[in-house]
């Protein structure tokens, strides 16, 4: 098989995931796009490992071992990520990453003063209370 086929498919899938990460607004959809990017890398690793296991004399099957490790780390990442998203949703009532701008700096410091500013302010106060406690 031509090596270009899996490599090109992997590049296209990676860029699809890149678009999803940049363009999506829901945090869980961003996590899905991150999964797409990880899978593109996995396809690349498997294809190059299959190529090198025939082309090279001595390989450690590092591509397939690393693919297994990536899958495992992706499973751990998705668990932690979803736990963080759920915690943020419980505190803020939204999983919209465009509205989670507490760490933003700049002249327009409070862009969401129009809507739910009371809830955000009280949530922030509650967080500060937690942090000091």
């Amino acid at each position: 098989m031509h090596l270009v086929y899996p490599a090109v498919l992997s590049a296209l899938l990676f860029c699809t995931g890149l678009y999803g990460v940049l363009a999506r607004r829901n945090a869980i959809l961003v996590l899905m796009s991150v999964e797409l990017m990880l899978n593109a890398v996995n396809l690349n690793l498997v294809a190059f490992d299959v190529w090198l296991s025939k082309a090279a004399r001595e390989t450690l099957h590092s591509g397939q071992a690393l693919t297994l490790f990536t899958i495992t780390i992706a499973a751990a990442e998705i668990g932690i990520g979803l736990a963080i998203v759920l915690a943020v949703y419980r505190n803020r009532g939204t999983s919209d990453i465009d509205r989670l701008r507490d760490a933003a700096e700049g002249p327009d410091d409070d862009p969401d003063s129009g809507h739910d500013s009371d809830a955000a302010a009280t949530a922030r106060a509650a967080e500060k209370a937690e942090a000091t406690a």
Binding site: M1, H2, L3, V4, D49, V50, S53, K54, H61
Partner: peptide, 13 residues
């Protein structure tokens, strides 16, 4: 462009 995967023989994975 000129690289080919040899899928014949024993399976690699």
């Amino acid at each position: 462009r000129t690289t080919w995967i040899d899928l014949d023989g024993a399976a690699a994975g």
